[in-house]
Nucleic acid binder design. Structure first.
Length: 280
DNA sequence: CGGCGCACCTGAGTGC
DNA sequence: TGCACTCAGGTGCGCC
């Protein structure tokens, strides 16, 4: 389920249930995610440790423990985190369960197993910062994010805008749905080369990015209060989408038909009228 | 190095 | 009801 807003909403949703909680036990399904779940390492690093913060970086959820060990979870395409009572029956595709000291459990469920679970032991805290976190793209909701920075980032880069926005090594957190929505909002054609945009256009793209991501988080945030049991689907399920999945429907801006094409190997929706390919 | 295609996995939906 | 086929919101690998 995750693009940045969904991961952020998940973080905010589990946060109040995890703070100050101590992990008593770790169980995994035995099935491999992107990489095998390191059950023994999880046990030795996390059992009897207390959670002190939960934060998001890019599309990763970082659960930090006293003693500096860090559990890192990526939701892949279909990963979900939820808080359940021990009495709640396990669901199909539950792959990791952390038993907490208040009779509740944190459960990671992932149908397609494209997600990942990793632990960075305290003695590797340095590497976590310098190798892993430093490798992530810029944060769209970070203080430094603006059109000027994107303009510089796109210098000499000929890839289509759609791919540029979705490249997590450059910008973190934007997936297929929001890339479509951002380009529509900014009036940019998805195949437009990244280095062909003016500074003004990049400022527009930056502004739309922040606006759309924040709107999606706010919409998903309405589900946070009942996050127990990992009910509803936060994020884009709550957000009014303008073009994604709307092939053949009327553009909300001009009424022209939304078209679908494949760009960078993924379904791409746009309005051929509002998003002109040729730049003037 | 930049960019492309594909593989990883399961399930939902569609058309016959 | 069943079967074959396509598609899905992410990432990283091998290849040119």
């Amino acid at each position: 389920m995750p693009e940045l807003p969904e991961v952020e909403v998940t973080c905010q949703g589990v946060l109040p249930h995890l703070l100050e909680r101590t992990v008593l036990a770790v169980h995994s399904s035995g099935k491999s995610l992107r990489q095998p779940i390191p059950q023994e390492l999880l046990r030795s690093c996390l059992c009897n440790k207390t959670i002190c913060t939960v934060e998001r970086r890019a599309k990763y959820i970082l659960i930090r423990f006293t003693g500096k060990d860090v559990l890192i979870i990526h939701l892949g395409m279909t990963g979900k985190l939820g808080i359940f009572s021990q009495a709640t029956a396990a669901a199909r595709h539950d792959h990791l369960v952390l038993t907490l000291d208040n009779t509740m459990e944190l459960r990671y469920n992932d149908v397609r197993r494209f997600g990942s679970v990793a632990v960075w032991p305290a003695d590797q805290a340095e590497e976590l910062e310098q190798v892993f976190l430093a490798r992530q793209g810029i944060e769209p909701l970070g203080a430094a994010f603006d059109g000027k920075q994107l303009h510089q980032l796109a210098h000499n880069c000929t890839v289509p805008m759609k791919k540029f926005l979705m490249d997590s090594r450059r910008i973190s957190g934007i997936g297929n749905i929001y890339a479509n929505e951002i380009l529509f909002a900014a009036g940019i054609h998805p195949v437009c080369p990244a280095n062909s945009l003016s500074l003004e256009q990049w400022q527009e793209v930056a502004g739309c990015t922040v606006h759309i991501l924040n709107k999606a988080i706010a919409a998903g945030g309405s589900t946070i209060s009942d996050f127990l049991g990992a009910s509803g689907q936060p994020g884009y399920f709550q957000l009014q989408l303008a073009v994604y999945g709307k092939k053949g429907e009327a553009c909300p801006g001009c009424g022209e038909e939304i078209v679908k094409e494949v760009v960078g190997g993924r379904a791409t929706f746009f309005c051929p009228e509002c998003q002109q390919e040729v730049q003037r």
